[in-house]
């Protein structure tokens, strides 16, 4: 074996310096019961980053005699395994899990739940299969070793909107869209808790890679009209009022207005991006990064109406 000069230097440095071995990353969960038999494992209010291991989405677990109903499975296999260990140790195992939508922070932990049904809206499953490789490449690039062993596993069972019962626990499932092409939200009938997926964000900037703003507004109008006792948003704290609906809708409107204003003033997307988020929302978790991403994702839809057709192929 040839040893390069660099390896020699690194070896010498390692021998001389008292460098502590870097601990393998691990997920430390803090599950909290927010209603009768409703557990919340809150995600970091950040973008996916090595510091959080991709554990940024909220995970909800509903206790049943047959084990937990797990709503979203985490952002990596090991995140999923940590969630599974909690369900197995404290909630009598897993009855079934659900994926609210196809963004990877919500379902890349599916591998730890593969022995039980994993349910999703058909549109979500299709998007999971279509996007798995690209999403996986992206997350390996950002998260590195946190992703060890993660092979995206799409949902294995279809769920439709309407009432259903798992392990004796009644759930009202709503098939909505707007954050993505297929967004599942559900109400736990025993407690009246709304588990909203990423249709709702609270104190964290909404993400827009697959957003349809008109559909999202319609979904928010529906969620805002529901008589619920408490809400678990996709990102952000559990709360008992309508704050997340109000804030998410205000963010969508303010973001769209900012893009329209920028396009009608003749700004380039680079200038709109560099300007940063709307001042009222600059403090939200994951901003300004999420605003910058959203500008690239949404710019074209706003630009086109600011530029009239003036010519063509001759």
């Amino acid at each position: 074996m040839r040893v390069t000069r660099r390896q020699t230097l690194l070896g010498a440095a390692a021998a001389l310096l008292p460098v502590p071995a870097r601990a393998a990353p691990e997920y430390r969960l803090e599950p909290r019961q927010v209603a009768d038999g409703v557990w919340l494992i809150e995600g970091a209010q950040e973008s996916i980053a090595p510091a959080n291991g991709g554990a940024i989405c909220n995970v909800a677990m509903l206790e049943t005699p047959e084990g937990a109903v797990v709503v979203d499975t985490g952002g990596t296999l090991r995140h999923g395994a940590a969630l599974r260990a909690f369900a197995d140790g404290r909630l009598g195992g897993v009855a079934a899990s659900l994926n609210t939508h196809h963004h990877p922070d919500h379902w890349f932990g599916n591998g730890a739940f593969a022995d039980r049904p994993i349910q999703a809206l058909p549109g979500t499953t299709a998007a999971q299969k279509a996007g798995a490789q690209a999403l996986s490449d992206g997350l390996y690039r950002i998260l590195g070793s946190w992703m060890q062993g993660t092979a995206p596993l799409a949902a294995t069972a279809a769920v439709e909107g309407g009432d259903m019962t798992i392990g004796g626990r009644g759930l009202t499932v709503m098939a909505l869209s707007g954050h993505t092409g297929a967004d599942l939200a559900l109400i736990d009938q025993r407690t009246g808790t709304l588990i909203a997926g990423d249709l709702l964000f609270l104190d964290r900037a909404p993400s827009f890679p697959d957003a349809d703003l008109a559909a999202w507004r319609a979904a928010l109008a529906r969620l805002g009209g529901l008589p619920v006792s408490g809400t678990i948003p996709g990102h952000g704290p559990f709360h008992r009022d309508s704050r997340a609906v109000v804030q998410t809708l205000a963010y969508l409107d303010a973001f769209a207005a900012r893009m329209d204003a920028a396009a009608s003033l003749g700004l380039t997307p680079a200038e709109a991006l560099a300007a940063g988020p709307m001042p009222a929302f600059a403090h939200l978790g994951a901003n300004p990064a999420e605003y910058r991403r959203a500008t690239v994702q949404q710019w074209r839809a706003h630009e086109i109406s600011a530029l009239p057709v003036i010519g063509g192929s001759v």
Partner: peptide, 21 residues
Amino acid sequence: AILSHLLPGGEAGLAGFGGGL
């Protein structure tokens, strides 16, 4: 000639972005 400042908060945003330097 950068126009980020035409958006509310854009001047501070641009500075935070590094101003393109």
